[in-house]
């Protein structure tokens, strides 16, 4: 299948804040790749950098999509190439109806029939959206807004979908549902780069995983291996091993990664 996205040693600044400190990552076509990391690690920043949302960034490094440099391109052009980003916190158009939100996802598409078909498909993925079709998006619940944001992102017909913490703030049942949908979307051929704090779910759905700390990847591997890793278990899945009950040891072990 080959490599779809190739991020080569990028560095990103917000003004003087050095947020991404040399990060490399490849996403293989057809897979789900997960980036794990705590709050403030820089997960969203990596996705925003890929989308060209941070002006004049990345400062260093290169980003290739299907073998072609995309760093420095306008967000609107990157979207046209087939990358779709579902931002953290949903960011739906609050005073547009659910249907209008979805149609905005298809803004650049000319294939009317295809759009109609995709709209129908989204309503099948997320039946609640059909019920809310004419309602303002801002009146939906958090979970419904998340579904809408994902569906809207899919309406662009992406080849690569970037998902930023889709499970954030959702009830356990909804989290399960969202991950089921992620599975389905991937089965239908969409490559996914998933950012999550919910490590357990993310590693279950993905084939490859990376762990980000302070703007650097500290671990990369197959998801099945990461799931069994002691440190990952302890720091990201909340499984404690007896020896590390003391904070000091945690700190020491964490240190060893850098």
């Amino acid at each position: 299948m080959g490599t779809l996205l190739d991020i080569k040693n990028i560095e990103t600044y917000y003004g003087l804040i050095y947020a991404i400190r040399g990060a490399s990552l490849t996403v293989e076509e057809g897979t789900v790749t997960a980036i794990l990391g705590n709050n403030g690690a820089g997960k969203s920043t990596i996705l925003k950098t890929v989308m060209g949302l941070i002006e004049d960034q990345p400062d260093k490094g290169a980003i290739e999509y299907m073998g072609r440099r995309i760093d420095g391109m306008d967000t609107e052009d990157i979207v046209q190439l087939g990358i779709s980003y579902v931002p953290e916190g949903r960011e739906v158009f609050e005073e547009l109806s659910v249907r209008e939100n979805l149609l905005m996802g298809a803004y650049t598409r000319k294939d009317k029939l295809g759009v109609e078909g995709d709209l129908e498909r989204m309503y099948e993925y997320f039946p609640v959206l059909r019920e809310r079709e004419t309602q303002w998006a801002g009146t939906l619940s958090g979970g419904e807004q998340q579904m809408l944001a994902i569906a809207r992102g899919l309406m662009t017909r992406p080849r690569l979908l970037l998902l930023d913490e889709p499970s954030l703030g959702l009830s356990p049942i909804l989290v399960k549902e969202i991950f089921k949908i992620i599975r389905t979307i991937n089965d239908e051929g969409v490559t996914i780069l998933l950012v999550e704090q919910n490590a357990r779910m993310a590693l279950n759905v993905s084939q490859a995983g990376l762990i980000l700390e302070n703007g650097r990847f500290v671990m990369k591997g197959k998801s099945e291996d990461l799931k069994e890793d002691k440190d990952v278990k302890e720091f990201y899945m909340g499984v404690r091993s007896e020896a590390s009950l003391k904070g000091y040891q945690r700190w020491k072990r964490k240190k060893a990664w850098r």
């Binding site: 046209q80 158009f93 803004y107 992102g153």
Partner: peptide, 8 residues
């Protein structure tokens, strides 16, 4: 920002 992400 969301609008730009739709390619608008």
């Amino acid at each position: 920002v969301a609008a730009r992400l739709m390619g608008i």
